[in-house]
């Protein structure tokens, strides 16, 4: 394990823990998802640079495009939730509990 490997693993884990344990706003959850995708982008890019495999450097770009898709879908849902539930607080998402 190199320090770079440690850095992106811990950033991903932090994002995942933040998303899992304490969120009050839907937007904060989306920010955590973005942080996870960002650490994955850095991991992909560093892997490419480490192994000097030039053909793999397409992968970070594809990842970035799809994380943009994910982020915009999440923001669309944020708007839809704000319309139906009044705010983006996660506590308001309680209509479906058992």
């Amino acid at each position: 394990m190199t320090p770079a490997h440690f850095a992106f693993s811990s950033t991903f884990t932090l994002g995942l823990m933040g998303l899992t344990f304490h969120r009050t706003h839907l937007l904060s959850a989306l920010l955590c998802l973005e942080g996870m995708m960002l650490s994955l982008f850095i991991a992909f890019a560093l892997w490419t640079l480490q192994l000097n495999s030039s053909s793999f450097s397409i992968a970070p770009m594809i990842l970035l495009a799809f994380s943009a898709c994910e982020a915009s879908a999440g923001l669309g849902l944020l708007v839809a939730t704000a319309r139906t539930h009044g705010s983006d607080r996660m506590q308001n998402l309680n209509l479906l509990q058992c």
């Binding site: 850095a7 992106f8 811990s10 950033t11 932090l14 994002g15 823990m17 933040g18 998303l19 304490h22 969120r23 009050t24 904060s28 920010l31 955590c32 942080g35 650490s39 850095i42």
Partner: peptide
Amino acid sequence: MVGGLVGVASN
């Protein structure tokens, strides 16, 4: 990098 994500994750 890690500190920034601590800032995001600490809600």
